[in-house]
Amino acid sequence: MTAAHRAPLAGALALAALAALAVWGAWSIPEGPDFSTVGPSAFPRVLSGTLALLAIAAVIQALRGKIPDEARSTEEPLLPGANARVGWVLAGMVFSPLGLYLFGFLVGAMIGFGTVARAFGAKNGWAIIGWSAASTLVVWLVFDKVLTLKLGNQLIMLPF
């Protein structure tokens, strides 16, 4: 087993774990009061069962090196620093909802915008803050004033 196989295998194993969760979820659905031929758990059981089979097939394919990995694409090779860039996006995915929850839309959305901008190569911190604040305010204005959609109760909240 080579390093090239490792990432696809991890993906296939993650799928298998998801399938296992689905199987467990499907078998814990109560049959319900319905006496008809097809109850609420029939489809989930069939589908989670198929997913489990497909996951096994995927693991086998991954072991044989038959699943392509864009990380090793020759057409459009991965540029160095990929992990750091994805790390920024992931950080945004965690901290943006947190900011949204604690401090309201302005902070949460700025974190989301800023981390993605950083991941796409923006280096200048002030430019990031400026652009994300400006875009967030414009979006807020459009949503709140034109579409009358409430993005939380206030633009900025305090968690206490």
Binding site: G112, F113, A117, I128, S135
Partner: peptide, 12 residues
């Protein structure tokens, strides 16, 4: 950076 930041912002 600003295009994709904007996409995330608007989706959110």
């Amino acid at each position: 950076p600003w295009l994709y930041g904007g996409i995330i912002l608007i989706s959110t």
